[in-house]
Design a binder for these strands. Structure first.
Length: 474
RNA sequence: GGGGUCGUCGGCUAGCUUGGUCUAGGCUACGAGGCUUGGGCCCUCGUGACCCAGGUUCAAAUCCUGGCGACCCCA
Protein backbone atom coordinates (compact mmCIF):
# COMPACT_ATOMS: atom_id res chain seq x y z
CA UNK A 1 0.00 0.00 0.00
CA UNK A 2 1.37 3.37 -1.01
CA UNK A 3 1.85 6.04 1.61
CA UNK A 4 1.17 9.14 -0.46
CA UNK A 5 -1.37 7.59 -2.82
CA UNK A 6 -3.76 6.13 -0.30
CA UNK A 7 -2.77 7.42 3.09
CA UNK A 8 -5.79 6.18 4.98
CA UNK A 9 -5.47 2.54 3.93
CA UNK A 10 -1.71 2.59 4.31
CA UNK A 11 -2.03 4.05 7.80
CA UNK A 12 -4.64 1.52 8.93
CA UNK A 13 -2.53 -1.36 7.64
CA UNK A 14 0.54 -0.21 9.52
CA UNK A 15 -1.44 0.20 12.73
CA UNK A 16 -2.69 -3.34 12.39
CA UNK A 17 0.39 -5.09 11.01
CA UNK A 18 2.88 -3.35 13.30
CA UNK A 19 0.79 -4.22 16.34
CA UNK A 20 0.24 -0.59 17.29
CA UNK A 21 -3.49 -0.45 17.81
CA UNK A 22 -6.56 -2.59 17.22
CA UNK A 23 -9.45 -0.44 16.12
CA UNK A 24 -12.01 -3.24 16.30
CA UNK A 25 -13.03 -2.47 19.84
CA UNK A 26 -16.83 -2.34 19.61
CA UNK A 27 -17.25 1.28 20.68
CA UNK A 28 -16.79 4.06 18.16
CA UNK A 29 -13.73 6.19 18.84
CA UNK A 30 -12.23 3.77 21.37
CA UNK A 31 -9.45 1.31 20.56
CA UNK A 32 -6.93 -1.03 22.11
CA UNK A 33 -3.27 -0.10 22.21
CA UNK A 34 -1.38 -3.29 21.43
CA UNK A 35 1.97 -4.26 22.90
CA UNK A 36 4.28 -2.64 20.35
CA UNK A 37 2.28 0.57 20.18
CA UNK A 38 1.93 0.86 23.91
CA UNK A 39 5.63 0.29 24.49
CA UNK A 40 6.36 3.08 22.03
CA UNK A 41 3.98 5.37 23.92
CA UNK A 42 5.58 4.51 27.24
CA UNK A 43 8.99 5.37 25.84
CA UNK A 44 7.70 8.73 24.61
CA UNK A 45 6.13 9.42 28.00
CA UNK A 46 9.44 8.65 29.66
CA UNK A 47 11.33 11.14 27.51
CA UNK A 48 8.72 13.84 28.01
CA UNK A 49 8.32 13.34 31.75
CA UNK A 50 12.08 13.40 32.21
CA UNK A 51 12.15 16.87 30.61
CA UNK A 52 9.21 18.01 32.73
CA UNK A 53 10.89 16.77 35.90
CA UNK A 54 14.11 18.56 34.99
CA UNK A 55 12.23 21.81 34.66
CA UNK A 56 10.50 21.70 38.03
CA UNK A 57 7.21 20.04 37.10
CA UNK A 58 5.81 17.53 39.56
CA UNK A 59 3.72 14.47 38.70
CA UNK A 60 0.23 14.06 40.13
CA UNK A 61 -2.88 12.11 39.25
CA UNK A 62 -6.28 13.79 39.27
CA UNK A 63 -9.63 11.99 39.02
CA UNK A 64 -11.26 11.24 35.69
CA UNK A 65 -14.63 12.57 36.90
CA UNK A 66 -15.48 16.23 37.34
CA UNK A 67 -18.63 17.57 39.03
CA UNK A 68 -20.89 19.63 36.84
CA UNK A 69 -20.63 22.82 38.94
CA UNK A 70 -16.81 22.89 38.73
CA UNK A 71 -16.96 22.33 34.99
CA UNK A 72 -19.38 25.24 34.60
CA UNK A 73 -17.32 27.81 36.50
CA UNK A 74 -15.36 29.35 33.63
CA UNK A 75 -17.93 30.51 31.09
CA UNK A 76 -15.80 30.40 27.93
CA UNK A 77 -14.41 27.01 28.87
CA UNK A 78 -17.81 25.37 29.27
CA UNK A 79 -18.99 26.91 26.01
CA UNK A 80 -16.05 25.38 24.21
CA UNK A 81 -16.34 21.87 25.59
CA UNK A 82 -19.92 21.20 26.69
CA UNK A 83 -21.04 19.84 23.32
CA UNK A 84 -18.53 17.02 23.46
CA UNK A 85 -18.73 15.90 27.06
CA UNK A 86 -19.53 12.38 28.25
CA UNK A 87 -21.88 12.54 31.22
CA UNK A 88 -22.32 10.09 34.06
CA UNK A 89 -25.94 10.42 35.13
CA UNK A 90 -26.64 7.12 36.83
CA UNK A 91 -25.08 4.77 39.35
CA UNK A 92 -26.76 1.39 39.36
CA UNK A 93 -30.45 2.08 39.01
CA UNK A 94 -30.29 5.43 40.80
CA UNK A 95 -30.03 8.77 39.12
CA UNK A 96 -27.18 10.89 40.51
CA UNK A 97 -28.14 14.12 42.28
CA UNK A 98 -25.04 15.73 40.90
CA UNK A 99 -24.08 14.74 37.37
CA UNK A 100 -20.44 13.91 36.73
CA UNK A 101 -18.53 14.27 33.52
CA UNK A 102 -15.50 12.48 32.16
CA UNK A 103 -12.68 15.00 31.83
CA UNK A 104 -12.37 16.35 28.28
CA UNK A 105 -9.29 18.17 29.70
CA UNK A 106 -8.47 18.67 33.36
CA UNK A 107 -8.52 22.40 34.17
CA UNK A 108 -11.76 22.08 36.08
CA UNK A 109 -10.52 19.01 37.95
CA UNK A 110 -7.21 20.56 38.92
CA UNK A 111 -7.94 24.21 39.64
CA UNK A 112 -10.33 23.73 42.58
CA UNK A 113 -7.39 21.94 44.21
CA UNK A 114 -4.98 24.71 43.23
CA UNK A 115 -7.30 27.10 45.06
CA UNK A 116 -6.82 25.02 48.22
CA UNK A 117 -3.10 24.48 47.86
CA UNK A 118 -1.95 27.95 46.89
CA UNK A 119 -1.86 30.30 49.90
CA UNK A 120 1.26 32.38 49.56
CA UNK A 121 3.77 33.64 47.02
CA UNK A 122 6.07 30.95 48.41
CA UNK A 123 3.77 28.29 46.92
CA UNK A 124 4.47 29.66 43.46
CA UNK A 125 5.27 28.74 40.83
CA UNK A 126 3.30 25.51 41.00
CA UNK A 127 3.81 23.23 38.03
CA UNK A 128 2.08 19.85 37.87
CA UNK A 129 1.55 17.30 35.15
CA UNK A 130 -0.16 14.00 34.46
CA UNK A 131 -0.17 11.47 31.60
CA UNK A 132 -3.74 10.25 31.27
CA UNK A 133 -6.63 9.52 28.95
CA UNK A 134 -9.23 12.22 28.27
CA UNK A 135 -12.68 11.89 26.76
CA UNK A 136 -14.32 13.95 24.07
CA UNK A 137 -17.42 12.98 22.16
CA UNK A 138 -16.07 13.87 18.72
CA UNK A 139 -18.85 14.52 16.25
CA UNK A 140 -16.63 14.42 13.17
CA UNK A 141 -15.69 10.99 11.87
CA UNK A 142 -13.28 9.38 14.31
CA UNK A 143 -9.91 8.10 13.10
CA UNK A 144 -7.57 5.68 14.86
CA UNK A 145 -4.91 7.61 16.82
CA UNK A 146 -5.75 10.88 15.06
CA UNK A 147 -9.24 11.54 16.32
CA UNK A 148 -10.42 9.29 19.11
CA UNK A 149 -13.11 9.79 21.70
CA UNK A 150 -10.67 8.51 24.31
CA UNK A 151 -7.14 9.66 23.75
CA UNK A 152 -3.88 9.72 25.65
CA UNK A 153 -2.01 12.87 26.42
CA UNK A 154 0.24 14.51 28.92
CA UNK A 155 -1.13 17.73 30.35
CA UNK A 156 0.70 20.24 32.49
CA UNK A 157 -0.83 23.04 34.53
CA UNK A 158 1.08 25.89 36.09
CA UNK A 159 0.37 28.86 38.34
CA UNK A 160 2.52 31.98 38.65
CA UNK A 161 2.75 35.35 40.32
CA UNK A 162 2.67 37.52 37.22
CA UNK A 163 1.82 37.73 33.55
CA UNK A 164 5.51 37.99 32.75
CA UNK A 165 6.27 34.82 34.65
CA UNK A 166 3.45 33.03 32.83
CA UNK A 167 4.89 34.27 29.53
CA UNK A 168 8.25 32.79 30.45
CA UNK A 169 6.49 29.54 31.29
CA UNK A 170 4.86 29.47 27.85
CA UNK A 171 8.31 29.83 26.30
CA UNK A 172 9.68 27.04 28.49
CA UNK A 173 6.79 24.77 27.50
CA UNK A 174 7.40 25.41 23.81
CA UNK A 175 11.07 24.66 24.33
CA UNK A 176 10.31 21.40 26.18
CA UNK A 177 7.99 20.17 23.45
CA UNK A 178 10.45 21.18 20.73
CA UNK A 179 13.20 19.22 22.44
CA UNK A 180 11.07 16.07 22.65
CA UNK A 181 9.80 16.34 19.09
CA UNK A 182 13.38 16.76 17.94
CA UNK A 183 14.33 13.43 19.43
CA UNK A 184 11.45 11.92 17.46
CA UNK A 185 12.58 13.59 14.23
CA UNK A 186 9.19 15.24 13.69
CA UNK A 187 8.55 18.30 11.54
CA UNK A 188 5.74 20.72 12.23
CA UNK A 189 4.76 24.36 12.33
CA UNK A 190 4.64 26.21 15.65
CA UNK A 191 1.68 28.49 15.20
CA UNK A 192 -0.12 31.06 17.25
CA UNK A 193 -3.77 30.31 16.69
CA UNK A 194 -6.08 33.10 15.57
CA UNK A 195 -8.28 34.41 18.41
CA UNK A 196 -11.36 32.66 17.11
CA UNK A 197 -9.58 29.32 17.39
CA UNK A 198 -7.86 29.63 20.77
CA UNK A 199 -8.41 27.20 23.64
CA UNK A 200 -11.69 27.84 25.42
CA UNK A 201 -10.77 30.00 28.39
CA UNK A 202 -7.28 31.01 27.24
CA UNK A 203 -5.86 34.45 26.50
CA UNK A 204 -4.04 32.92 23.56
CA UNK A 205 -2.96 29.53 22.24
CA UNK A 206 0.10 28.17 20.51
CA UNK A 207 -0.10 24.89 18.67
CA UNK A 208 2.24 22.39 17.05
CA UNK A 209 0.85 21.28 13.70
CA UNK A 210 2.64 18.26 12.20
CA UNK A 211 2.40 17.53 8.50
CA UNK A 212 0.55 14.48 7.23
CA UNK A 213 0.93 12.76 3.83
CA UNK A 214 -2.67 13.59 2.91
CA UNK A 215 -2.01 17.31 3.34
CA UNK A 216 -3.92 17.66 6.54
CA UNK A 217 -2.24 18.90 9.68
CA UNK A 218 -2.12 16.95 12.90
CA UNK A 219 -2.10 19.04 16.09
CA UNK A 220 0.38 17.18 18.28
CA UNK A 221 0.68 19.73 21.06
CA UNK A 222 -0.70 22.98 22.38
CA UNK A 223 0.45 25.60 24.86
CA UNK A 224 -1.98 28.10 26.35
CA UNK A 225 -1.56 31.25 28.37
CA UNK A 226 -4.65 31.35 30.55
CA UNK A 227 -3.95 34.74 32.13
CA UNK A 228 -6.19 35.27 35.16
CA UNK A 229 -9.30 33.76 33.56
CA UNK A 230 -9.38 30.55 35.55
CA UNK A 231 -7.91 32.18 38.67
CA UNK A 232 -10.95 34.46 38.76
CA UNK A 233 -13.41 31.64 38.18
CA UNK A 234 -11.83 29.30 40.73
CA UNK A 235 -10.63 32.00 43.16
CA UNK A 236 -7.01 30.94 43.03
CA UNK A 237 -5.25 33.70 44.93
CA UNK A 238 -2.03 34.10 46.86
CA UNK A 239 -0.79 36.49 49.52
CA UNK A 240 2.07 38.57 48.20
CA UNK A 241 5.06 39.93 50.12
CA UNK A 242 3.16 43.13 50.97
CA UNK A 243 0.17 41.24 52.39
CA UNK A 244 -2.11 41.90 49.43
CA UNK A 245 -4.12 39.10 47.84
CA UNK A 246 -3.75 38.59 44.11
CA UNK A 247 -4.94 36.28 41.40
CA UNK A 248 -2.44 33.79 40.02
CA UNK A 249 -1.54 33.73 36.34
CA UNK A 250 -1.79 30.36 34.72
CA UNK A 251 -0.65 28.36 31.76
CA UNK A 252 -1.46 24.88 30.61
CA UNK A 253 -0.15 22.69 27.84
CA UNK A 254 -0.94 19.37 26.33
CA UNK A 255 1.19 16.85 24.49
CA UNK A 256 -0.93 14.51 22.38
CA UNK A 257 0.61 11.07 22.86
CA UNK A 258 -1.77 9.26 20.51
CA UNK A 259 -1.29 11.91 17.86
CA UNK A 260 2.47 11.97 18.26
CA UNK A 261 2.51 8.25 17.52
CA UNK A 262 0.34 8.99 14.49
CA UNK A 263 2.80 11.66 13.37
CA UNK A 264 5.78 9.34 13.78
CA UNK A 265 4.07 6.75 11.61
CA UNK A 266 2.80 9.27 9.08
CA UNK A 267 6.06 11.15 8.66
CA UNK A 268 8.72 8.47 8.95
CA UNK A 269 7.30 5.19 7.79
CA UNK A 270 7.45 3.76 4.30
CA UNK A 271 5.89 1.04 2.19
CA UNK A 272 7.77 -1.63 4.16
CA UNK A 273 6.16 -0.47 7.39
CA UNK A 274 7.13 1.46 10.45
CA UNK A 275 10.43 3.26 10.93
CA UNK A 276 11.08 4.14 14.55
CA UNK A 277 13.43 6.75 15.94
CA UNK A 278 15.97 4.75 18.03
CA UNK A 279 15.13 6.62 21.26
CA UNK A 280 11.61 5.22 21.39
CA UNK A 281 11.97 1.86 19.63
CA UNK A 282 10.96 -0.90 22.07
CA UNK A 283 13.61 -3.02 20.37
CA UNK A 284 16.43 -0.94 18.94
CA UNK A 285 18.46 -3.76 17.49
CA UNK A 286 17.32 -7.15 16.30
CA UNK A 287 19.78 -9.97 15.65
CA UNK A 288 18.87 -12.43 12.92
CA UNK A 289 21.06 -15.54 12.79
CA UNK A 290 21.54 -16.94 9.30
CA UNK A 291 21.68 -20.69 9.77
CA UNK A 292 22.99 -23.25 7.32
CA UNK A 293 22.82 -26.95 7.78
CA UNK A 294 25.98 -28.16 9.46
CA UNK A 295 26.94 -24.75 10.85
CA UNK A 296 23.96 -24.00 13.08
CA UNK A 297 25.72 -24.59 16.36
CA UNK A 298 28.64 -22.26 15.64
CA UNK A 299 26.42 -19.53 14.24
CA UNK A 300 23.95 -19.73 17.15
CA UNK A 301 26.78 -19.55 19.65
CA UNK A 302 28.27 -16.57 17.86
CA UNK A 303 24.89 -14.84 17.66
CA UNK A 304 24.53 -15.30 21.41
CA UNK A 305 27.96 -13.77 21.91
CA UNK A 306 27.01 -10.78 19.76
CA UNK A 307 23.76 -10.45 21.71
CA UNK A 308 25.56 -10.36 25.08
CA UNK A 309 27.98 -7.71 23.86
CA UNK A 310 25.22 -5.44 22.60
CA UNK A 311 22.98 -6.03 25.61
CA UNK A 312 25.73 -5.17 28.08
CA UNK A 313 26.04 -1.75 26.46
CA UNK A 314 22.47 -0.90 27.48
CA UNK A 315 21.00 -1.06 23.99
CA UNK A 316 17.53 -2.65 23.76
CA UNK A 317 18.40 -5.74 21.72
CA UNK A 318 16.50 -8.86 20.73
CA UNK A 319 17.87 -12.14 19.39
CA UNK A 320 15.38 -13.73 17.01
CA UNK A 321 15.98 -17.44 17.57
CA UNK A 322 12.88 -18.75 15.79
CA UNK A 323 14.22 -21.56 13.59
CA UNK A 324 10.94 -22.14 11.78
CA UNK A 325 11.17 -18.87 9.90
CA UNK A 326 13.60 -18.04 7.15
CA UNK A 327 15.87 -15.01 7.51
CA UNK A 328 13.95 -13.27 4.71
CA UNK A 329 10.70 -13.61 6.60
CA UNK A 330 12.30 -12.17 9.70
CA UNK A 331 13.70 -9.24 7.75
CA UNK A 332 10.24 -8.28 6.52
CA UNK A 333 8.72 -8.78 9.94
CA UNK A 334 11.17 -6.53 11.77
CA UNK A 335 10.98 -3.96 9.03
CA UNK A 336 7.22 -3.81 9.52
CA UNK A 337 7.78 -3.19 13.24
CA UNK A 338 10.38 -0.54 12.46
CA UNK A 339 13.35 -1.87 14.43
CA UNK A 340 16.03 0.74 13.65
CA UNK A 341 19.00 -1.61 13.21
CA UNK A 342 19.22 -5.24 12.18
CA UNK A 343 22.30 -7.35 12.84
CA UNK A 344 22.75 -10.28 10.51
CA UNK A 345 24.98 -13.00 11.83
CA UNK A 346 25.82 -15.81 9.40
CA UNK A 347 28.60 -18.36 8.87
CA UNK A 348 30.66 -15.80 6.97
CA UNK A 349 30.42 -13.28 9.85
CA UNK A 350 31.14 -15.99 12.35
CA UNK A 351 34.27 -17.19 10.52
CA UNK A 352 35.64 -13.67 10.20
CA UNK A 353 34.46 -12.49 13.68
CA UNK A 354 32.44 -9.74 12.05
CA UNK A 355 28.79 -8.62 12.01
CA UNK A 356 26.59 -7.26 9.23
CA UNK A 357 24.55 -4.19 10.20
CA UNK A 358 21.53 -2.95 8.27
CA UNK A 359 19.73 0.28 9.08
CA UNK A 360 15.99 0.48 8.62
CA UNK A 361 15.92 3.95 7.05
CA UNK A 362 17.59 2.88 3.80
CA UNK A 363 18.24 -0.86 4.27
CA UNK A 364 21.93 -0.38 3.50
CA UNK A 365 24.39 -2.97 4.83
CA UNK A 366 27.77 -2.44 6.43
CA UNK A 367 30.13 -5.06 7.81
CA UNK A 368 32.16 -4.28 10.93
CA UNK A 369 34.52 -6.26 13.17
CA UNK A 370 32.88 -7.71 16.27
CA UNK A 371 34.76 -5.42 18.65
CA UNK A 372 33.39 -2.33 16.86
CA UNK A 373 29.76 -3.47 16.95
CA UNK A 374 28.47 -1.26 19.74
CA UNK A 375 30.20 1.88 18.50
CA UNK A 376 28.99 1.22 14.99
CA UNK A 377 25.40 0.74 16.19
CA UNK A 378 25.50 3.96 18.19
CA UNK A 379 26.80 5.79 15.13
CA UNK A 380 23.95 4.33 13.11
CA UNK A 381 21.41 5.51 15.70
CA UNK A 382 22.71 9.06 15.29
CA UNK A 383 22.63 8.75 11.54
CA UNK A 384 19.11 7.32 11.56
CA UNK A 385 17.56 10.13 13.57
CA UNK A 386 19.41 12.66 11.39
CA UNK A 387 18.09 11.07 8.19
CA UNK A 388 14.53 10.90 9.58
CA UNK A 389 14.65 14.54 10.63
CA UNK A 390 16.04 15.65 7.26
CA UNK A 391 13.53 13.67 5.23
CA UNK A 392 10.64 14.91 7.28
CA UNK A 393 11.64 18.55 7.24
CA UNK A 394 12.23 18.54 3.50
CA UNK A 395 8.76 17.06 2.98
CA UNK A 396 7.26 19.78 5.15
CA UNK A 397 8.96 22.40 2.96
CA UNK A 398 7.52 20.78 -0.17
CA UNK A 399 4.05 20.65 1.32
CA UNK A 400 3.90 24.37 2.08
CA UNK A 401 2.92 26.41 -0.96
CA UNK A 402 2.41 30.18 -1.30
CA UNK A 403 -1.12 31.09 -2.32
CA UNK A 404 -1.10 34.00 -4.80
CA UNK A 405 -4.84 34.47 -5.09
CA UNK A 406 -8.12 32.82 -4.12
CA UNK A 407 -8.17 30.29 -6.92
CA UNK A 408 -4.63 29.12 -6.22
CA UNK A 409 -5.56 28.89 -2.54
CA UNK A 410 -8.36 26.53 -3.45
CA UNK A 411 -6.08 24.48 -5.70
CA UNK A 412 -3.38 24.17 -3.05
CA UNK A 413 -5.60 22.99 -0.22
CA UNK A 414 -8.43 21.18 -1.99
CA UNK A 415 -6.90 19.85 -5.16
CA UNK A 416 -3.23 19.32 -4.34
CA UNK A 417 -3.70 18.66 -0.65
CA UNK A 418 -1.04 20.97 0.63
CA UNK A 419 -0.63 23.62 3.29
CA UNK A 420 -1.17 27.11 1.90
CA UNK A 421 0.83 30.13 3.02
CA UNK A 422 -1.46 33.13 2.86
CA UNK A 423 -1.38 36.88 3.55
CA UNK A 424 -4.29 37.88 5.77
CA UNK A 425 -5.66 41.14 7.19
CA UNK A 426 -6.80 39.48 10.43
CA UNK A 427 -10.43 40.32 9.64
CA UNK A 428 -12.94 37.70 10.74
CA UNK A 429 -14.99 38.02 7.52
CA UNK A 430 -11.89 37.38 5.44
CA UNK A 431 -11.07 34.36 7.62
CA UNK A 432 -14.51 32.98 6.86
CA UNK A 433 -13.95 33.52 3.14
CA UNK A 434 -10.56 31.84 3.33
CA UNK A 435 -12.30 28.87 4.91
CA UNK A 436 -14.91 28.75 2.17
CA UNK A 437 -12.42 29.18 -0.66
CA UNK A 438 -9.91 26.64 0.62
CA UNK A 439 -11.95 24.05 2.46
CA UNK A 440 -9.29 24.41 5.15
CA UNK A 441 -8.82 26.54 8.22
CA UNK A 442 -6.46 29.30 9.22
CA UNK A 443 -4.12 27.53 11.60
CA UNK A 444 -2.23 30.65 12.64
CA UNK A 445 1.08 32.42 12.19
CA UNK A 446 4.55 31.20 13.02
CA UNK A 447 6.10 32.24 16.29
CA UNK A 448 9.53 30.70 15.77
CA UNK A 449 10.33 33.11 12.93
CA UNK A 450 8.89 36.50 12.15
CA UNK A 451 7.27 36.53 8.73
CA UNK A 452 6.29 39.89 7.29
CA UNK A 453 3.48 39.83 4.71
CA UNK A 454 4.85 40.95 1.39
CA UNK A 455 1.39 41.20 -0.21
CA UNK A 456 -2.07 42.50 0.62
CA UNK A 457 -4.80 40.33 2.14
CA UNK A 458 -5.70 37.51 -0.23
CA UNK A 459 -9.41 38.24 0.18
CA UNK A 460 -10.05 41.96 0.66
CA UNK A 461 -6.85 43.40 -0.81
CA UNK A 462 -6.27 45.65 2.16
CA UNK A 463 -3.01 45.64 4.07
CA UNK A 464 -2.16 42.19 5.40
CA UNK A 465 -1.16 41.90 9.05
CA UNK A 466 0.03 38.32 9.08
CA UNK A 467 1.27 35.46 7.00
CA UNK A 468 -0.90 32.54 8.07
CA UNK A 469 -0.97 28.86 7.23
CA UNK A 470 -4.16 27.34 5.90
CA UNK A 471 -4.80 23.61 5.89
CA UNK A 472 -7.36 20.99 6.58
CA UNK A 473 -6.98 19.51 10.02
CA UNK A 474 -7.57 16.35 11.95
C1' G B 1 -24.15 19.17 10.43
C1' G B 2 -25.32 17.21 5.02
C1' G B 3 -24.29 13.50 1.00
C1' G B 4 -22.14 8.87 -0.63
C1' U B 5 -19.77 3.93 -0.50
C1' C B 6 -19.35 -0.29 2.35
C1' G B 7 -19.63 -4.50 6.39
C1' U B 8 -18.17 -12.45 4.40
C1' C B 9 -12.62 -16.93 8.36
C1' G B 10 -7.40 -13.37 12.64
C1' G B 11 -6.03 -10.08 7.91
C1' C B 12 -7.09 -9.15 2.40
C1' U B 13 -10.92 -10.64 -0.62
C1' A B 14 -14.48 -13.79 -4.52
C1' G B 15 -19.77 -14.45 -4.56
C1' C B 16 -24.67 -10.04 -4.30
C1' U B 17 -26.68 -7.03 -10.45
C1' U B 18 -30.62 -11.86 -11.91
C1' G B 19 -32.64 -15.09 -4.08
C1' G B 20 -31.97 -21.82 -4.73
C1' U B 21 -26.22 -24.87 -7.79
C1' C B 22 -22.80 -21.32 -1.34
C1' U B 23 -23.57 -24.26 6.05
C1' A B 24 -19.43 -20.41 0.84
C1' G B 25 -13.90 -20.34 -3.15
C1' G B 26 -8.81 -18.03 -3.23
C1' C B 27 -4.47 -15.60 -0.96
C1' U B 28 -2.40 -14.73 3.75
C1' A B 29 -2.09 -15.84 8.89
C1' C B 30 -2.35 -19.69 12.57
C1' G B 31 -1.46 -25.26 14.21
C1' A B 32 1.14 -30.30 12.88
C1' G B 33 4.93 -32.57 9.75
C1' G B 34 8.80 -32.62 5.96
C1' C B 35 12.35 -29.75 3.10
C1' U B 36 15.00 -25.19 3.30
C1' U B 37 17.62 -20.83 5.50
C1' G B 38 22.65 -14.00 3.31
C1' G B 39 15.20 -10.97 1.26
C1' G B 40 8.57 -13.54 2.12
C1' C B 41 11.18 -21.14 -0.87
C1' C B 42 8.34 -25.52 -1.69
C1' C B 43 5.07 -29.85 -0.44
C1' U B 44 1.20 -32.53 2.69
C1' C B 45 -2.59 -32.15 6.34
C1' G B 46 -5.57 -29.22 9.70
C1' U B 47 -8.24 -24.76 12.13
C1' G B 48 -11.31 -20.77 10.64
C1' A B 49 -16.44 -16.28 8.26
C1' C B 50 -21.80 -14.33 5.73
C1' C B 51 -22.06 -7.29 11.64
C1' C B 52 -26.82 -7.19 14.77
C1' A B 53 -32.36 -7.03 14.98
C1' G B 54 -36.68 -7.20 12.30
C1' G B 55 -39.26 -7.84 7.47
C1' U B 56 -40.40 -10.00 2.36
C1' U B 57 -40.23 -15.22 0.51
C1' C B 58 -41.43 -22.06 -0.18
C1' A B 59 -36.21 -20.31 0.10
C1' A B 60 -31.84 -14.61 2.05
C1' A B 61 -24.60 -13.67 2.24
C1' U B 62 -27.75 -11.83 -1.90
C1' C B 63 -33.91 -7.89 -1.62
C1' C B 64 -36.28 -4.10 2.18
C1' U B 65 -36.24 -1.26 7.08
C1' G B 66 -33.69 0.02 11.44
C1' G B 67 -29.32 -0.24 14.59
C1' C B 68 -24.08 -0.60 15.27
C1' G B 69 -19.42 0.02 12.84
C1' A B 70 -15.78 1.53 8.88
C1' C B 71 -14.25 4.71 4.95
C1' C B 72 -14.81 8.90 1.35
C1' C B 73 -16.72 13.75 -0.12
C1' C B 74 -18.96 18.44 1.16
C1' A B 75 -20.11 22.29 5.05
Amino acid sequence: MKKFKNFSKWFDEILFNADILDNRYPVKGFAVYKAWGFRIIKNIIEILEERLNETGHIPMLFPVVIPEDAFAKESEHIKGFSSEVFWITHAGDRELDKKLLLRPTSETAIYPMFALWIRSHADLPLKVYQSVAVYRYETKATRPLLRMREFLWNEAHTAHKSWEEAERQVAEAVEIYNSVFKRLGLSYLVLRRPDFDKFAGAVYSIAFDAWNPDGRVNQIGTVHNLGENFAKAFEITYEDLDGSHKNVFQTCYGFGLSRVVAAIIAQHSDDHGLILPPDIAPIQVVIVPILYKGATHEVNAYAREVYEIIKSSGIRVHLDTDEDKTPGEKFYYWEMLGAPVRVEVGPRDQRERKVTLVKRVDLKRIVVPLEDTVTAIKDLFNEIIRVLEERSSSTLKEIIVDAEDQSSLSDIVKLNRRIARVCWCEGVECAEKIREASGGEIRGYRIDVEEKPEKPCIICGREAKRIVYVARAY
